[in-house]
């Protein structure tokens, strides 16, 4: 009989170890110390890796596009065109606006550092959008780009939009993103350059 009770010893020890492990606390980790923290996908939204990969595709295409050569030529003649960067339109089923703002910021930095265009600040644009759209709904509307262009005195708008196909089944959810970036001539509304990139995220 005693042996039966003794056999509970290892079980109790195992239970104690499991409980201890289960109660272990979380810790904060810095990505610079442990780059692996950036790797896993944590949701079906967009993350830093998605933004970097997407911008690499899009901006590398813009670098060699004819419009960029045009801007280089103008800059060579001391006539740098003025460019505004408009918010990317979110047409997805995910609240990714903060990541789209980050994309906007990265694109702005890239253009400023290229040195071939003059970039209008976001604050000035926000004021102008408020003037055009009214204080109650001061939201960027791509249909009003010519008006924005006139108000701001900009020749080109760099903008984009993100669409998605979001599907849910009993055992998975998949979001396929389609990201478009374009350069629009504000006087003619002509799309002077456009490129796309794809990102897929899923829970399975």
């Amino acid at each position: 009989m005693n042996r039966r009770w003794l056999s509970l010893g290892p079980l109790a020890t195992a239970a104690f170890v499991l409980l201890e492990t289960g109660c272990a606390g979380k810790e904060y980790v810095r990505g610079a110390d442990d780059p692996s923290v950036d790797r896993p996908a944590m949701s079906t939204g967009l993350d830093k890796d998605d933004v970097q990969l997407t911008l690499k595709t899009l901006l590398n295409q813009l670098r060699v596009a004819p419009i960029m050569n045009e801007w280089r030529t103008s800059a060579g003649q001391n006539d740098r065109p003025t460019v505004a960067i408009a918010p990317f339109i979110n047409e997805t089923s995910e609240h990714i606006d903060s990541m789209l703002s980050a994309m906007l910021g990265e694109t702005e930095t890239w253009l400023v550092n290229s040195g071939i265009v003059r970039v209008v600040s976001q604050e000035r644009q926000a004021d102008m959008i408020r003037q055009v759209e009214g204080a109650q709904h001061p939201i960027f509307d791509p249909r009003h780009i010519p008006q924005y262009g006139r108000q701001l005195g900009v020749k080109y708008y760099v903008t984009g939009k993100v669409g998605a196909s979001d599907e849910r089944t009993q055992d998975a959810r998949r979001v396929q993103y389609f990201l478009f970036m374009q350069v629009i001539d504000t006087e003619t509304s002509e799309i002077r350059w456009q490129q796309k990139a794809y990102v897929t995220k899923a829970i399975r």
């Binding site: 979110n90 997805t92 089923s93 995910e94 609240h95 606006d97 109650q136 979001d166 849910r168």
Partner: peptide, 20 residues
């Protein structure tokens, strides 16, 4: 909050769930 952009995202999420 008069945020149509956010409301559209929720409407699209509702559509995904409605289909499911």
């Amino acid at each position: 909050l008069r945020d149509l952009n956010g409301a559209r995202v929720e409407a699209r999420r509702l559509a995904v769930m409605q289909r499911y």
